[in-house]
Amino acid sequence: MATIEDYDERPPGAPRTTFIQRHSALTRLTHWINVLCLSLLLMSGLQIFNAHPALYWGQYGADADPSWLSIEAVEEGDGFRGILRVGSLTVTTTGILGISGAGDDAAQRGFPSWSTIPSYQDLATGRRWHFFFAWLFVINGLVYTLHGVATGHFRRDLAPSAEEMSPRHLKQEIADHARLRFPKGEKARHYNVLQKLVYLAVIFVLLPLMLATGLTMSPGIDAGYPFLLDVFGGRQSARSIHFICAWSIVLFVILHVSMVILSGLWNNLRSMITGRYAIEIAGDDK
């Protein structure tokens, strides 16, 4: 990442601020397409989940296997109560999950209308939205991956070194992040080892697993590639893994956005829009 501009003059030896080109144009473009795709995939996925708001392990689900997670509306007095069941744990979620709204406007649904596309219950439309943006997401990911391999981006920017993977270095990085101590100066030119490991896990583990389990839920794909059902232990198991991966990505996004805000919102946002990222370096550095 080369320096492209120095913009202030200070006395010799004083720290100075300089801009570096942190993200290529293609990286920035694919990043914002990912933001669009992931948002609409989540919302349309919740619409699909609402058609049967329960998850199972195994092949058949429903009456054949007990659910390990469900969002339900149970009758209570003159009305209903929303509950979330995870294994033996039951949590009341009226107004958010199970039952949305209040009084005459209350409706039985898994996730609330504001979180789904479309807002009303429509499984067919939800599937069309989900499939369209799923394939756009896959194509966008392939473009990013091929670009990363061709330009050496993965090897140069994302592959952790042996020194970075040492227990001592990892422990220090974790401690610095826990104290909200972010890299400064020359260290800010590069991703830290925790960023590298998390990005690699998302790109090469979570997202491929999401794609594979999504395909396994398709009867047409299963007919052509029946081994997928054996790999994931059945269609219902694939649905559960897909759900877990989706919320793991949501957790990653929450942590990612939090770090972006805490480490300098405008600087990070500008770098993902224009590519320009400001760092402070010692005045005698070249």
Rank of each mutant, 00 (worst) to 15 (best):
L194I: 00
G152H: 04
M1L: 03
K184L: 05
G101Y: 09
F182Y: 15
Y120T: 15
R28K: 14
K196P: 00
A282W: 05
I254Q: 04
M165W: 03
H242G: 08
D6L: 04
A134M: 14
L197M: 13
H23E: 13
T116G: 02
R128P: 01
W57N: 10
P15W: 13
K184D: 08
R109S: 13
S161L: 05
V138Y: 04
P53Y: 00
T116H: 01
G103A: 10
F137D: 04
T94Y: 03
G79C: 05
T151C: 07
I48E: 15
E5M: 10
K171I: 00
L46G: 03
T216G: 01
R156V: 08
L229S: 12
D176S: 08
V35E: 04
K187Y: 00
T145G: 05
W68H: 12
S70Y: 07
A134Y: 03
E9D: 13
S166W: 00
D63Q: 05
G220S: 09
G148F: 02
A124I: 08
P112G: 01
L269H: 07
R28A: 04
Q172S: 11
R179V: 01
L29C: 08
I117E: 05
A51R: 12
A62C: 01
D104H: 07
A159H: 10
E75L: 07
G110M: 08
